[in-house]
Nucleic acid binder design. Structure first.
Lengths: 210, 210
DNA sequence: TAACCTACCAAACACTTGTTAGGGAAGGAT
DNA sequence: ATCCTTCCCTAACAAGTGTTTGGTAGGTTA
């Protein structure tokens, strides 16, 4: 296993991804292709085509196809957890925490659409491999954050007590993250607007109150 | 339909699928592997292993790997639409139609878990290929059924008018179908029970009414 | 000038992929 | 006993896979 050399922190570039220079560009296009076709269905020659070079040349920048995927996912998760941890550290009430987590999630989808789509598709299979152990760890943290918030809300009367909390957790989680499969940045709605509407449905339902 | 154990080379262990004879058995195991690893990530040798024969022998039963996928998906969709059409033909009110569609969906997930998981993963890419054109057609029918029901509900005051209907459609659709990724038949909840809870959340929200 | 670094290409490598061809064992029907 | 059908195996095929090696053009530094 090669040690990850320190990933340079960056400023914003033209694409959505970070990481400066050629390496960052290549990662961004790789993420795009992975998201569109799936990881295993994507050949390195396809990535190279999209980036405008030959397949072998990718190995000047990366150890392997797998290490590209690794870097894409870990970079995304690092930024995701920076946002989540900030929300959780604020120690808001259950409802406000839920709202902040959902809003933050849609912001991440907006910024890392490709990475989120890849994560959705491949995380389940990858979490088993040792190299991607951080995916399983992230999923546990994820569950603790969301499930804990829901349980706090049930305890203090914010959320309904007659629902299976675990079911509600999966409901909220999936509801938010599958949006990455159809969301396109620059569309009609901003991430915050989508978050607002989603929260309205999740919290109050789509039926008219009688 | 209880003892659905075993992993390796089994002969009986009928899974959820039907279809008689050896062909049906092979399709069921193929669906299981496709669902677990993804279509392109699955090799025909892996399917053959799980079924207890050699890769080449699969071609006595099927034309190609793709035709296995085709048969799995089209069989599932045929049965799905039989259920949906029955619901729609009943011409219930918007709320009752929604409830019936959701319940029917969870029943299909219960019966065709593997096929649904495959559909979720691969439909987007496959819909482009001519052979799988029925996937795109099915998606259009799907959208008409759900979106139409929501619009009828907004028109007659059943559903909230202050929500983006298209967003609500994706919300409901995704909420229901991603359940196939974690649902396991024979679990704690019956399909009907899960449908009831999901409907409760979608219609009335998870927040306590004040 | 020479040395060096970055970013790439051209060509091959070993391996895996889906698929095919020919053959044969078992069993029922004739 | 013969035929036929069903089901599978052995052995290979060409195409495609991720990856490696050696080389090179152009810019920067010494």
């Amino acid at each position: 296993m090669t040690d990850n050399e320190s990933v340079p922190i960056s400023k914003k570039t033209t694409t959505d991804k970070q990481a400066p220079g050629r390496r960052g560009e290549l990662l961004a296009t790789a993420a795009e292709v992975f998201a569109a076709q799936g990881y295993t269905a994507t050949t390195v020659r396809r990535i190279a085509d999209a980036a405008g070079l030959l397949a072998g040349s990718l190995y000047y920048h990366f150890d392997s196809k797998e290490s590209m995927l690794d870097e894409i996912l870990s970079t995304f998760l690092d930024e995701l957890w920076a946002g989540y941890d900030a929300v959780l550290a604020a120690r808001l009430g259950p409802r406000e925490t839920l709202e902040a987590l959902v809003t933050e999630s849609f912001r991440e989808i907006d910024r890392h659409r490709a990475a989120v789509a890849i994560y959705q598709r491949e995380a389940k299979d990858l979490a088993g491999r040792p190299r991607f152990g951080y995916l399983a760890e992230s999923q546990r943290k994820f569950e603790r954050a969301w499930l804990g918030t829901l349980e706090r809300g049930v305890a203090d009367g914010t959320f309904r007590a007659d629902l299976d909390v675990r079911l509600a957790y999966r409901f909220v989680r999936d509801t938010v993250w599958v949006a990455a499969s159809w969301y396109r940045p620059g569309g009609a709605h901003s991430p915050e607007e989508i978050a607002r509407q989603y929260l309205s449905m999740v919290l109050d339902g789509i039926a008219v109150r009688t």
